[in-house]
Design a protein around this nucleic acid. Structure first.
Lengths: 191, 191
DNA sequence: GTAAATTGCCTAAAAGGCTTAGGCAATTCC
DNA sequence: GGAATTGCCTAAGCCTTTTAGGCAATTTAC
């Protein structure tokens, strides 16, 4: 009998695609087996269990998102960097809703520490360097940006903005503009 | 055989408690039946299905949250109202994480329209009246506040802020302060 | 107060998901 | 080519959801 050529890597990638198609919480070992036209039990040679699969998808998504954000940031600073970062975030969530949802999958602390999650925080701090904020403002600002980006993207994904004018992209621009203004207002008076 | 005294209302309330204890997506018809020491099939006299149960919990949570927010808002205006509203939101999410998660359960449009969801938006607009914003700024601001509150609360719930100083409440105060400043900066110059 | 109608919880059963155990065939290694 | 390993399989157990049909407890109506 011909082999299907499964591997943890392929399964996780396929799981990510499946997530984008049907939603992250509809990702199931069974559905994945169907997609490879293979019996469910076969997947267990490559995955510990269902939780393991979801963790893998989460790590993949965090990785991809970090890469996009890093690309967006390259060669930019100040408001330019802020806007590029914000857009990278939102665009990823819109193009890959299932993967984006996966980035919210709760990771155990060891896994989280080894994930691309840290890079996200570091990139946010890199953006804020352009605004020259003293501590603890900088940390507060990291959290504010994280909250706004995640909050906006997740409300938009659940359709929260879709039935009223103005449209979501307009608000997004407005939000980024005013976050920039807010951050600039925090910069201590120069020497 | 003695009856257990089930009803849709009781089941939904118990489901909400269960959600707070074990997480909203661990809420299951089976678990609920166990809690009432009743056979699973018995619940189907009171609930259409599992989705129905979750919808019920979501509606209950939206209702409770709206009531708290309304209480918080009573007799306040301006920054005072903003802070009280923000705290009502965050406190509810911290005290009732499962119910809070339920407020994010996707409702079909008809159900959503009849839910307390609208009241939330109206209360946000009520707060913003104190800042006297022209359209479309007001709508953008409604969305900004929604994004920040939801984003912050959900990142805090997933432990995003727990392993670094300063602590989350400090950031929360900072965020509310600076949102207030941002909103004030938008007020058009008076006559 | 009792008979009839309704309601509430039950058993049974089907269908689908997760997971483990153990087996045989395909591949890889020497 | 033979031995060792790997990859997918069958089988089986357990859990959750949902429907169907039944009997007993309660409520309603006389």
């Amino acid at each position: 009998m011909a082999r299907a050529g499964l591997s943890a890597r392929r399964l996780i990638r396929a799981g990510a695609e499946l997530a984008d198609e049907v939603g992250f919480d509809q990702v199931t070992v069974s559905a994945l087996a169907r997609r490879f036209d293979v019996k469910v039990a076969s997947l267990y040679s490559h995955l510990k269990n269902s939780h393991d699969l979801k963790t893998g998808i989460a790590l993949l998504a965090l990785e991809e998102l970090a890469e996009r954000a890093a690309d967006a940031l390259a060669g930019r600073a100040g408001k330019d960097a802020l806007a590029a970062f914000a857009n990278a975030y939102r665009d990823y969530a819109r193009e890959h809703p299932g993967r984006y949802a996966a980035t919210r999958f709760p990771l155990d602390p060891r896994t989280a520490a080894a994930s691309a999650g840290r890079r996200h925080a570091q990139m946010t701090r890199a953006i804020l360097r352009g605004y020259d904020l003293p501590e603890p403002d900088q940390t507060h600002a990291v959290r504010l940006l994280g909250s706004v980006f995640h909050g906006f993207v997740s409300l938009e994904a659940s359709g929260g903005f879709s039935h009223s004018a103005p449209d979501a992209p307009e608000t997004w621009t407005w939000v980024v503009d005013h976050l920039d203004a807010l951050l600039r207002s925090l910069r201590p008076p120069g020497p």
